[in-house]
């Protein structure tokens, strides 16, 4: 090897406990960061899915005496048909309505004996109707009709998903902060345990920038390596989570989908940048205190 070849890569010995501390902590934090990122992405997707599923749909619930119910149903359907912003309106068949209620009331209850309201499923155009005007028309022409656009369901769901996403983002910030603190401590330990290296470099006229860079380069590369391994392990763990179907909805959709799988690729370079900033700041602070 040439005597002067890329000496800044070589002047800091590649040993010591701080080396493993950096690799392990960066790996662990990257592992957690992938899950926090997955939570943030999933929460955003969930909010979008819930909103999309409930938006552009509405229900008209019609209660009326048995002798008037058919007439009022026809009136409501007519009102809906002639209202701009309504794409379609269809009465839910009694059998279908019974099926929906069966899950709550059981199969043995004689639904025919209950005074059930008629349900009309409404699909809106993207522009949607004038809801206030529609409600006024319905109350005037069919007093027993109630227009429900699902707002009271949609809002808390969207709020819950938004808070989940905020928690995930705060977690990411905390992970970044803790990683920086650990790297700063490791950098400080690395500098303290290499006093002879610093003394020799100072003796031959090396500037603080060169000395700091030599340490920072090694620390950043190790942080990047640890983060790469941690990210890979986390992605493996995420891929191994079964995507539940059927009646289990809690975990379905948790993780990344499509191009979203590329997002965790940002974690190792971000970890390196964070390590670079934390260790550079620490190195200059420590070197200022060494004569």
């Amino acid at each position: 090897m040439s005597a002067g070849a890329s000496i800044s890569r070589l002047v800091v010995p590649r040993r010591g406990q701080s080396v493993w501390l950096i690799v392990l902590s960066a790996g662990a934090m990257a592992f957690l960061a992938v899950f926090a990122l997955a939570l943030a992405v999933s929460a955003a997707q969930l909010a979008q899915t819930w909103s999309a599923a409930l938006s552009q749909t509405a229900t008209v619930r019609l209660s009326a005496p048995p002798e008037e119910i058919d007439e009022q149903t026809a009136i409501v359907l007519e009102v809906l048909r002639t209202t701009p912003g309504i794409a379609s309106a269809e009465q839910i068949a009694p059998e279908e309505q019974a099926e929906l209620l069966e899950a709550w009331l059981g199969p043995d209850l004689p639904l025919d004996a209950l005074p059930l309201p008629r349900l009309i499923e409404v699909t809106e155009t993207p522009e949607g109707p004038d809801r206030q005007g529609l409600r006024l028309r319905l109350s005037a022409e069919a007093p027993g009709a109630v227009f429900d656009d699902h707002t009271r369901w949609r809002r808390p769901l969207a709020e819950a998903a938004g808070r989940l996403r905020a928690v995930a983002l705060v977690s990411l910030v905390l992970i970044g902060g803790v990683t920086s603190a650990i790297i700063a401590l490791a950098a400080s330990a690395a500098l303290a345990s290499n006093g002879q290296v610093i003394r020799v470099l100072r003796l031959v006229g090396a500037r603080d920038r060169f000395i700091a860079r030599a340490f920072v380069r090694q620390i950043s590369l190790r942080a990047g390596l640890g983060a790469l391994v941690g990210t890979a392990l986390a992605l493996g763990a995420l891929a191994a989570i079964p995507q539940a179907g059927g009646d289990v909805h809690l975990l379905s959709g948790f993780g990344f989908s499509g191009a979203g799988w590329a997002l965790p690729a940002l974690i190792p370079p971000l970890a390196m940048i964070l390590a670079w900033l934390a260790s550079m700041t620490t190195a200059f602070q420590v070197l200022r205190g060494v004569t």
């Binding site: 090897m1 040439s2 005597a3 002067g4 000496i7 800044s8 070589l10 002047v11 010995p13 590649r14 002879q196 290296v197 003394r199 020799v200 470099l201 003796l203 031959v204 006229g205 090396a206 500037r207 060169f210």
Partner: peptide, 26 residues
């Protein structure tokens, strides 16, 4: 006589040049 113990003698001898950005004629 302190040195960087993990570097070779020739790398240590070249250190005043290499650590200050000057070329090191082998």
């Amino acid at each position: 006589c302190q040195f960087l113990d993990h570097l070779s003698v020739e790398q240590n001898v070249a250190l005043p040049l290499s650590a200050t950005g000057r070329s090191v004629p082998d």
